[in-house]
Design a protein around this nucleic acid. Sequence first.
DNA 1: GGTTACATACCAACCGGACGGTATGGTATG
DNA 2: CATACCATACCGTCCGGTTGGTATGTAACC
Lengths: 204, 204
Amino acid sequence: MPKDGTETRLQILDAAQELILARGFAGTSVDDILARTGLTKGAFFHHFKSKHELARALVERHSARDLERFEAILERAERLHRDPVQQLLIFFGLYAEFLEELADPTAGCLFASYLYESQLFDDSVLEIIRSNFAHWRKRLGEKLRAAAELHPPRIPVDLDDVADMFNAVAEGAFVMARTEQDPKVVARQLRQMRNYVELLFGAA
Amino acid sequence: MPKDGTETRLQILDAAQELILARGFAGTSVDDILARTGLTKGAFFHHFKSKHELARALVERHSARDLERFEAILERAERLHRDPVQQLLIFFGLYAEFLEELADPTAGCLFASYLYESQLFDDSVLEIIRSNFAHWRKRLGEKLRAAAELHPPRIPVDLDDVADMFNAVAEGAFVMARTEQDPKVVARQLRQMRNYVELLFGAA
DNA sequence: GGTTACATACCAACCGGACGGTATGGTATG
DNA sequence: CATACCATACCGTCCGGTTGGTATGTAACC
């Protein structure tokens, strides 16, 4: 039993995230997290100097993972086809696959959870979420503009809005998935998003 | 000055909804609501026998209003055109208009707020939300099937999923609108949804 | 031996809720 | 039409439990 605390810290983060996605941040007490991990107050406040610092650590981790996954999947899609439209369609498909595998009944986005309690968090936390959405908008926007040059859209659209729509659909699908037990709702909705882009650039 | 309590009850409901949309249900204390209304504990627990009964009253009101608005807008769209596809497009447009006028910076959906704290509520509350989504799916699904008969979709799709997509986009757009101050994000995203249906049935 | 990683014990503030009290207006009875 | 009675609307205080957070102790590793 080495005195490496990283494992304990990870336990706290994982338990906290699961609980927060089910009850919200304010609805999750430090004691709740401790009860689930079997740890004590001392352990918690050793790793996080306050409950709000835990919140920041969680959203930072979530954002880092999300951006890493985004880039990985987008690069994979870029390797699989040369045409930017096809790259987008493949990207949506791969992302839907990922979310389908996940299949977590408590699935949900930590960002959305925070945003519906946004008044509880300071701006630095919300800024992380903001820049995450901005990253998606920027990268997908670039790809959409490349697509539009080769295949003019059948309808005049704001491509940044189309880029934003991916996250909008995903976030909304997460919300709806919570009413049923079925987490596949998310993948099905992303497939609709795929259809939209396919129709928009007239690939069909 | 009659001793009619309905006004007080309304004050509590309005203040509670506003606070809950900003801080979540668990993050909003009864005292918070009271401070905003200038009322006292006695008044609150006279009108609601518990904090959870307030939650139920709020979601019931929200659902009733939503369904009423849905039917009103859909009927208006049906009167404005004979073709079911055009009716859908007009419906989306009218709904986007409504949300644009609203333009509330604290805008958000109470359903989503609850669903991200779903473990705090009993099933009867969640059932209200579930049946609300089901209503949309059913009514828009009917309309989409009528549209598909006259104008076969360019791509094979599950029309119930397309119906669900409206709420998914709206819910997701609400989430994203919270990161910026701009509440027009919702209307812009609904316009994308409109485009999808337009392209799907090949009206363009 | 000093730093790291926790456990234990404890606290002040806040939480939802209970409860007794009061003011007001409608109603039934004479 | 005056009085007695009661239900409704609301006030303000109190309570037990829970909250996030702290102070202190201790055992293990470097």
